[in-house]
C-alpha cells in the first residue's frame, strides 16, 4: 500500500493549494452564514410588515399588540445581524452581495414602521444608526445607499396596501392627527398647492407617497449599474402603487357615500391592470 503511494509523487503545488483550500473554505463558510442570515432577516421583516398592516392609525405610537407580536421578529433580526457582523468587516465589507436581500427587506419594514409611528420618512443616517443599535457593541453590518433606496421603493408598496385596506374598512384615506403649525417651517401642501401657514391640515398617505416619489425621481443611481436597473424597475411599480391608491380614492370620493361601510373599492373595473385585484385582495 505504501509502495503504491510512493509511485504517485505528491504534486509540488500541494502546499500552495492547501493554503488556498483553507482560505476558500473560510470564504464559503462566511458566504453561507450570510445567505442564511439574509434569508432569516427577510422572513422576519416580512412578518413584521404583515403585522404592521393591521395598524389603522397614522402618526401615533403603534398599538401594544403590534409591538408585542413583532418583538420576536426584531429579536431574530438582531441575532442574525450580530452573527454576521464579523463576516462583513474590512476587506469583506462588499464581498457578499447576498447581504443586500435581507438589508432591503429590513429597510422596508423599518421605514414602514417609522412612517406609521411618525408619519415621516426615515433618513439614511437614522436607518444606519438603527442597524448599529441592533448590532450592539460589536462590529456593525454595513447598510448601503442601495439597500436604503431600494427598501424605500418597496415601502411605497406597503403604503399602498395600508391605504387601500384603511379605505375599504374605514371609508377614508389615512391621515395624520391634526397638528399645530410648526413655527416658520415650510407651509403644508394641500392638493398640490401651498397654503398659508394657518392651522395645519394633517397630511394624508397619498400626498406623502407622491412627495416621496417626487424626491425619488430626482435621485439618479450610477449609469449602467445594477442599482440603476433595480431602481428603474421599482420606480415603475411605485408609480403603479400610487395610481392604485389614487383610483381607490377616486372611487371613494365619487361613489363612496352610496356604498355601505366595509365595501371594497372595485379596482378590477380598470381595464388593462388584471393583477390589481389579486394584489389588493391578499389583504
Amino acid at each position: 500500500m505504501s509502495e503504491y503511494k510512493q509511485e504517485q509523487p505528491i504534486s509540488p503545488y500541494m502546499a500552495m493549494f492547501e493554503e488556498f483550500r483553507k482560505e476558500l473554505d473560510e470564504h464559503h463558510d462566511r458566504r453561507e452564514r450570510i445567505v442564511k442570515a439574509s434569508r432569516d432577516i427577510t422572513a422576519a421583516s416580512k412578518k413584521i410588515i404583515f403585522t404592521l398592516q393591521r395598524v389603522r392609525k397614522l402618526g401615533v405610537p403603534l398599538p401594544p399588540y403590534v409591538n408585542k407580536s413583532n418583538e420576536e421578529y426584531w429579536k431574530t433580526i438582531e441575532t442574525r445581524f450580530r452573527e454576521i457582523a464579523p463576516d462583513v468587516q474590512n476587506v469583506n465589507a462588499y464581498r457578499y452581495p447576498q447581504l443586500t436581500w435581507g438589508n432591503q427587506e429590513f429597510m422596508e419594514a423599518l421605514s414602514f414602521q417609522h412612517y406609521l409611528e411618525t408619519q415621516t420618512l426615515i433618513s439614511y443616517e437614522q436607518a444606519k444608526s438603527r442597524v448599529a443599535a441592533l448590532c450592539g457593541d460589536g462590529p456593525t453590518v454595513p447598510l448601503t445607499i442601495e439597500d436604503y433606496v431600494l427598501g424605500i421603493y418597496d415601502m411605497i408598496g406597503e403604503l399602498m396596501r395600508f391605504s387601500i385596506t384603511a379605505m375599504a374598512l374605514n371609508g377614508n384615506l389615512p391621515a395624520g392627527e391634526p397638528r399645530k403649525a410648526p413655527a416658520g417651517e415650510d407651509s403644508p401642501m394641500i392638493n398640490g398647492e401651498e397654503t398659508a401657514a394657518a392651522p395645519e391640515e394633517p397630511r394624508n398617505v397619498l400626498t406623502d407617497m407622491r412627495h416621496i416619489e417626487q424626491e425619488l425621481e430626482f435621485f439618479h443611481p450610477g449609469p449602467g449599474t445594477p442599482f440603476e436597473k433595480d431602481v428603474n424597475g421599482k420606480a415603475k411599480v411605485m408609480h403603479q402603487c400610487i395610481g392604485k391608491v389614487e383610483l381607490a380614492n377616486y372611487s371613494l370620493t365619487v361613489r363612496g357615500k352610496e356604498r355601505p361601510k366595509g365595501w371594497r373599492p372595485d379596482l378590477a373595473e380598470r381595464p388593462k391592470e388584471e393583477d390589481t385585484r389579486a394584489e389588493v385582495e391578499t389583504f
Partner: peptide, 15 residues
Amino acid sequence: AAPSGLIAHGLFEDL
C-alpha cells in the same frame, strides 16, 4: 417644498 417634516431636509441631496 416637501410638506413639513415628511422628508428631512437634504436627505436625497446627500444620497
